[in-house]
């Protein structure tokens, strides 16, 4: 028996969301009295034995280059064999773009129940009940998995990463890597930026910024806070900002530690995408903006005056 943790990589490095999934999987293994092992696919330049810091005893690695790109069909076959090799009863995956590509496929292959978008460890006192986010963050559902093998995909930024001293044994897994059905002809990575789904701090702005030419201060604030930038739907629809920055019910749903909303009124659809943020700050000149009802901290004021002051105060804080 084991909990098998899928460790995701990008450009030959372990993704940040993987550490969260590792912590989750290790805690789950302790809860159900089994050990936690990790599976890594593709070429990785990081030291995989260091994953032991998160509590896994063993790391299974399939270093085939075909696996450097996610082809759901190919990945599924490899994970199926890894589950058999480790006798896994639970598979844990991040609900990131990779998880969205492969989790359901693996579930169908193994006839193993999937809870997609989990936000907490399962309640195993009566069955195997996993809490997940539903209605785009407006509510939660508790879902029971009845099958022998269970699959959980964990919403990014749902679980606090913990680590300690430790090393894991790294073993090569001889798994069947089938021919890819998908040919990757181009990869376009936005480098140097913090990916929005994984960011601890997100600085987001809306129509109150009046036009794309005014985003300089938003980017500067994000830079000072090592934050990702996001925007509301009207801003993305007007092409002031790229679509992948759109957070909300029909955009990306995020759960950073700190969400700073500037010039965003806080329509219910927007709040749905961000209300799992731990701390929300709103800056808006309209005191009636609905966002003030949802936020933790707020300033009623003009963004064009408040944001430059905020940048200089944060610089002061960082210089102390």
């Amino acid at each position: 028996m084991s909990v098998l943790i899928f460790v995701d990589q990008t450009e030959n490095h372990i993704k940040k969301s993987s550490y969260e999934v590792l912590t989750y999987g290790v805690k789950l293994a302790a809860q159900i009295g089994t050990n936690a092992e990790a599976i890594v696919l593709g070429t990785v330049n990081d030291d995989l034995s260091a994953l032991g810091k998160y509590g896994v005893t063993k790391v299974h690695h399939v270093a085939n280059e075909t696996l450097n790109h996610v082809d759901a069909h190919v990945y599924t076959k490899v994970i199926e064999e890894a589950v058999a090799a480790t006798n896994a009863t639970v598979v844990v995956i991040s609900h990131n773009t990779t998880g969205k590509a492969i989790a359901a496929r693996i579930s169908a292959k193994l006839k193993a129940g999937l809870v997609a978008g989990a936000i907490a460890l399962p309640d195993t006192s009566n069955g195997f009940v996993v809490k997940k986010s539903v209605f785009s963050g407006k509510a939660f559902a508790n879902v029971n998995i009845a099958t022998a093998i269970k699959i959980i995909s964990l919403n990014p930024n749902s679980f606090h990463v913990t680590s300690a001293d430790g090393t894991a044994t790294v073993e090569t897994l001889n798994a069947t890597v089938e021919a890819a059905k998908i040919k990757v002809t181009a990869v376009n990575k936005v480098s140097g930026e913090v990916p929005l789904s994984e960011a601890d701090i997100v600085v987001s702005a809306g129509r109150g910024m009046k036009g794309p030419e005014n985003w300089g201060m938003i980017e500067e604030l994000a830079h000072e806070l090592h934050a990702a930038t996001a925007c509301s739907r009207p801003v993305a629809d007007a092409d002031w900002r790229p679509h992948h920055e759109h957070v909300g019910q029909t955009g990306l749903q995020i759960a950073p530690n700190l969400y700073i909303a500037i010039g965003i009124s806080g329509a219910i659809q927007h709040l749905a995408g961000v209300n799992r943020s731990k701390v929300m700050v709103v800056i808006n000149k309209d005191p009636e903006a609905p966002f003030f009802k949802a936020a933790d901290y707020g300033i009623v004021g003009d963004a064009f005056e408040v944001v430059p002051q905020l940048i200089s105060e944060i610089k002061k804080l960082h210089n102390n």
Partner: peptide
């Protein structure tokens, strides 16, 4: 493969703490 046990709503927020615009 799964069954829905229950739903729940997020806990209510404690309320916003407002700071004056000239006291960033």
């Amino acid at each position: 493969l799964t069954s829905l046990v229950s739903f729940e709503l997020p806990p209510a927020k404690a309320g916003v703490k407002l700071v004056a615009a000239d006291n960033v």
